[in-house]
Design a protein around this nucleic acid. Structure first.
Length: 291
DNA sequence: AGCTCTTCCTGAAAGC
DNA sequence: TGCTTTCAGGAAGAGC
């Protein structure tokens, strides 16, 4: 599933070859995941790619409209979310077309930027330059840039489970199920812990482990669990470093206890019951206070 | 405020 | 063997 490290890897790949290229045409297959498919065909041809950035799990392609100079007209951002199975690749127009490829952006160098998505949980939308700041604000902080102080402010007072908060894109943009579980394991925090009950030391450990896990995963070009590949079609390597994600029943790498899986915040959550002690139930805590 | 449930979608895997 | 059922999950919205 594309999360921050996978999206960052795709963005770096696109950044190496797309800037300066012009989009010649747009061809569409199924369009139910595109906000305004007609606008894609009307507004993109002739526009020039200026740069590519990552906003949380979104890929933002900065476009200079057809026939204008970069600072003469309002830019348009082609914004793409890969959902669960989305792939954004550059290929030669003559290359074979994989199944479920629904969007083709023809480029002026004989290549195509193609969007393939089996389940179509992804999204494609156009955001005008004037609205990109608003779009960015809705996304919450960048996990690799957030300070410890800001991290504590956003999570430490909340009555929700820490796993739910890590997945909430309005708080942190870019963390998904894999990296939430791996970060919680590294910080030795149970996913169902209530955030405001964590100590400052635990929040600091979590802040640190999120950064460490994401940085390492970017270095290894992401996790290829099911469909994920980068912009050249290559798989990542971080799936071989997973300590808990999809390791239910296998021994913990630290203590050999069997890894457990429970549903927290509606998501499969993997953890070591010994390294990540469960939150005490309210009833049990009342009893403990009385005695 | 924050939880669960549902929806979207397909293919892989499990169940019968 | 071959069918049907279940499951996976990012995000948004409904309802409690």
């Amino acid at each position: 599933m594309p999360e921050l490290p996978e999206v960052e890897t795709v963005v770096r790949g696109l950044r190496a070859s797309l800037p300066g290229k012009t989009i010649l045409d747009v061809r569409l297959g199924k369009t139910d995941f595109i906000d305004d498919p007609v606008a894609l065909g009307e507004r993109l041809p002739g526009s020039r790619i200026l740069s590519i950035t990552r906003l949380g799990k979104f890929i933002a392609i900065d476009l200079v409209p057809a026939g204008t100079q970069p600072d003469a007209a309002e830019h348009l951002y082609l914004v793409i979310h890969l959902g669960m199975t989305g792939q954004l690749m550059t290929r030669l127009a003559s290359d074979p077309i994989p199944p479920h490829t629904h969007v083709f952006f023809g480029l002026d160098d004989g290549r195509e930027l193609r969007y393939t998505d089996v389940r179509r949980f992804g999204r494609i939308l156009l955001v005008p330059e004037s609205k990109i700041a608003m779009f960015r604000e809705r996304l919450g902080a960048e996990p690799l840039e957030i300070t410890l102080k800001e991290f504590c402010a956003r999570l430490g007072s909340r009555g929700a489970r820490v796993k739910a908060l890590l997945l909430d894109q309005r708080i942190l943009g870019g963390v998904g199920n894999i990296y939430a579980d791996e970060s919680l394991f590294r910080a030795r925090i149970h996913p169902a812990r209530i955030a405001r009950n964590l100590t400052h030391a635990q929040l600091a450990a979590l802040h640190q482990s999120v950064r460490k896990i994401l940085t390492t995963a970017i270095r290894l070009r992401g996790s290829s669990v099911s469909d994920y590949v980068d912009s050249d079609g290559n798989r990542g390597e971080f799936q071989f470093r997973h300590r808990v994600y999809q390791r239910e029943g296998k021994p913990c790498v630290r203590c050999r206890e069997k890894i457990c899986r429970v549903i927290v915040a509606g998501r499969s959550s993997h953890f070591c019951p010994r390294c990540q002690p469960a939150p005490r139930l309210r009833k049990a805590r009342r009893k403990a206070r009385r005695s």
